[in-house]
Amino acid sequence: MSAFLSIAGLHASIDDNGTRKPILNGVDLDVPAGEVHAIMGPNGSGKSTLSYVLAGREDYEVTAGTALFKGEDLLAMEPDARAAAGVFLAFQAPVELPGVNNANFLRTAVNAVRRARGEAEMDSMQFLKAARAQARALSMPEDLLKRNVNVGFSGGEKKRNEVLQMALLGPSLAILDETDSGLDIDALRIVAEGVKALRSPSFSALVITHHQRLLDYLVPDRVHVMARGRILRSGGPELAHQLEAQGYAGFLAEAA
């Protein structure tokens, strides 16, 4: 197994009114290059925290463990350096940026990442052409590019905008934090197609979800069950079906 993303013994906590509240309690997870892995688990199990910690959000304190990405210490990198290295987090609740034009922001991000990767920057014509093509592929109305980032977007539009950013930034590791929540069936298919379009031997995805539906489209290589800040069980795609049928209770009892 090639070490693409390798998480070992990861502990993290958040400051809860002055006391340190542990959320991740020893996560072990390997995602090889080219694979799609799903993480499922009940609310409060630490799935979103794991995605934030991997993307570099400062509210969380890593108290033990390691996360290596392509052999490098991911946890030592600034959030923007992680993006340049190829990590992309699709937010569960995408953030609104009033006064920031969506197309301009995307171009700034794309060029910052290209600069950091030693690639030539895109001029505005090149960029707009690429952005419009992607927006069409995601069935996004073109005027969303002209509006302020996520401001006044519907839930589905915000999620599509995340996938649009992902497609244009060209990550090698995408972490999708409940990107399927709040999407109707058509939007879900479009988002899944957006992720599938990126699939290659050098692209991996970590898909956090509550539902089987997204996995029907994406078909993960591995499924992990997370609870109480740890991975309790890992298996093939059949594990997701088992969860869908039986719920988490059995796994939680087994682990207790």
């Binding site: 993006a83 992309f88 940026l97 920031v100 922001f105 991000a109 910052a112 930034l169």
Partner: peptide, 25 residues
């Protein structure tokens, strides 16, 4: 902070992210 993190997670360096938010303000 949330907006800054969102922008940085898209590869925009902190100095540039701050500049964009100030200009937006």
């Amino acid at each position: 902070e949330e907006q800054l993190f969102y922008m940085r997670s898209r590869g925009v360096p902190l100095v540039e992210a701050r500049a964009i938010l100030v200009r937006a303000f």
